[in-house]
Design a protein around this nucleic acid. Structure first.
Lengths: 334, 334
DNA sequence: TCGGAAACAGAAAACGTTTGTGGAAAAAAG
DNA sequence: CTTTTTTCCACAAACGTTTTCTGTTTCCGA
């Protein structure tokens, strides 16, 4: 009753394990009659195929690895949900690893996953990962690699990212169209690609609207809540109160909000436009206007793309895929 | 350079694959000298052990499966983070499956995971899973099963849950001690264990404080945001405005809050006590008082426990483990 | 100088599958 | 009837490891 193998079924039916294997997989070698007998016996004996043995012979693990910097963060958990939705519709299992923003740990995960012979890897790189060399290991193996959200533009791998520059432009234009003029910007670190791109989008939209791009209206804050808090403080000091502020990320927006609360400012007076979104947005006393990154779709598409690369016979050239953003206003909050 | 096997290393060094295998694992059969040579060659050739082959012979996959109803939900993503933290400190990889609150899908995941020969399963059951029979499959295999958060009390498996009744009691007592008297309750479904237990705790704390348990002050709402919205509406109708309301879950609290916003009520006038918590709580105009379930710890402990059961030689009796809650006030919000 | 232990390495078998080849009997075609 | 084809199944080998068993040297003490 326990740990039934093909051999055990075979013995009971006076067949060989090979025939049983074939019968279970509906191979044409086997008669309908026999197939039926085999399947019934397998059921009765509680047979469960051993996928690790199968992987060994077939050289296919039907498994992909996913590595993210963190989980308890609405952006990633939503992307992951997209990944899992796509996985569900595929025949692959998913091994998830969390790098906790650490390149050494990221590397460790890659190694284990390669050793497990995953057929593909879906990675959003850690903050600390300096270069694409961290992934050279993959080259020696029959494993496809696809980056999502955070990756390397010039690499040999497909990379799905949001269209930062265009998204920022769209968001800021939305504000100018509403009549806002004194629009400040708490940017991300300019050393990071998305920080730079979002800022470029901001500048472009301001210029396009015929508004001056005031150096003092821009503060290089960072990406976290804490960065937002400090950045907003600096902004108040060097620029004064804006009508609206474009924040590089949702958490940065939260930090700014916190500053206002702590300093008895009325959040109603300053509109916040944030890159990113959160399902909690509607509960804020004054919800942000969000440049939504369609996180779920990113996960879903990234997974689909990876499988495509795995299953393609003769290699797919790597692509840089930019996903469109959309503006979430109060009205169309979920 | 690609797909190097023990045999390949052996050939280059004029050894057998067995010796190479032993050398790499520091077996005492092999001289230090040879070990060094082997390791260097392995490194040079880019050897990566094949864990699926290893699993097959050792009958240990060093892998556990985790099944949760959903991911993009702060409760679960935080528990998962705890699980991953514990996994990191262990030698096991984690395969994650999402049941999307569906028992059929849950079952499908269990089957695949068993077929992959995971050594253990960590499950928070779906809403739809009626009985523990959904897990009978596990019995036939060498796989340990541990429930967390949602599980079955009378089963043959260890179950880690939060101490709902005591937590609710503690929370409500906290309110009565602050002087609140008209405390209403939006409960979860009473058919569900945690719904019933939290309500019992509420009633006990009210009685203990010498306050009347008013039937009209209790509405059986549910667990979601939507349930909270409707439940609060009903409460207003049948009971009127309370001084405080104890919500069965954090989302229920959000629903109630939304109702207030939609009906021009001042959220400041009604304190919300919620079972559960959220990292966004501090950004609400009037943060909830939370009965925190120490989600991270639950994930961490559940994983630890599972590994313990896997590695114990001669079976561990199943346990019902209750985790303590703690009250999060505005002051000690992170 | 002998006996025995320690150090080192190889051979064979096993883990549970799948794939490929071969072959006997039955069925179809001539 | 023979020949050919088809149907059905068995056998052997392979996937990349680890484990157990066996064997050869070397080294040491008596």
């Amino acid at each position: 009753m326990k740990n039934v193998r093909l051999k055990d079924i075979a013995k009971r039916l006076d067949l060989t394990k090979v025939s049983v294997s074939k019968a279970l997989r509906d191979h044409s070698d086997i008669s309908e009659e026999t197939k039926k007998r085999v399947k019934e016996m397998a059921q009765k004996m509680g047979y469960r195929p051993n996928l690790v043995a199968r992987s060994l012979t077939s050289k296919k693990s039907q498994t992909v690895g996913v590595i993210v910097p963190k989980i308890a963060h609405s952006f990633f958990s939503s992307v992951i949900e997209g990944i899992y939705q796509a996985a569900l519709e595929s025949e692959y299992e998913v091994i998830l690893g969390v790098s906790m923003e650490d390149d050494k740990l990221e590397r460790k995960h890659i190694e284990s996953m390669l050793d497990m012979r995953v057929e593909g890897l879906l990675i959003s790189v850690s903050e600390k990962t300096g270069s694409v060399e961290n992934f050279d290991l993959v080259k020696g193996m029959d494993t496809q690699l696809v980056f999502f959200d955070r990756g390397f533009t010039g690499s040999d791998y497909t990379y799905l990212k949001v269209e930062d520059r265009g998204g920022a432009r769209k968001g800021v234009r939305h504000m100018t169209e509403q009549g806002y003029e004194k629009i400040a910007h708490l940017s991300g670190y300019l050393s990071v690609e998305i920080g730079k791109d979002r800022r470029l989008g901001y500048e472009e939209a301001m210029s396009a609207a015929g508004l001056e791009v005031d150096r003092n209206a821009i503060v290089e804050a960072g990406f976290s809540e804490d960065d937002g808090y400090k950045g907003f403080a600096k902004l108040m000091e060097q620029y004064g109160k804006p009508e609206a502020v474009f924040c590089a990320t949702y958490p940065v927006g939260l930090g700014a909000l916190q500053y206002m609360k702590d300093h008895d400012m009325d959040p109603a007076e300053i509109a916040i436009l944030a890159f990113g979104s959160s399902e909690f947005n509607q509960y804020l006393a004054h919800p942000f206007i969000c440049i939504d990154q369609s996180t779920f779709e990113m996960g879903y598409s990234a997974f689909e793309r990876l499988i495509m690369e795995i299953e393609s016979e003769d290699g797919v050239p790597p692509e840089l895929i930019s996903l469109q953003t959309r503006i979430l206003n109060k009205e169309d909050m979920v």
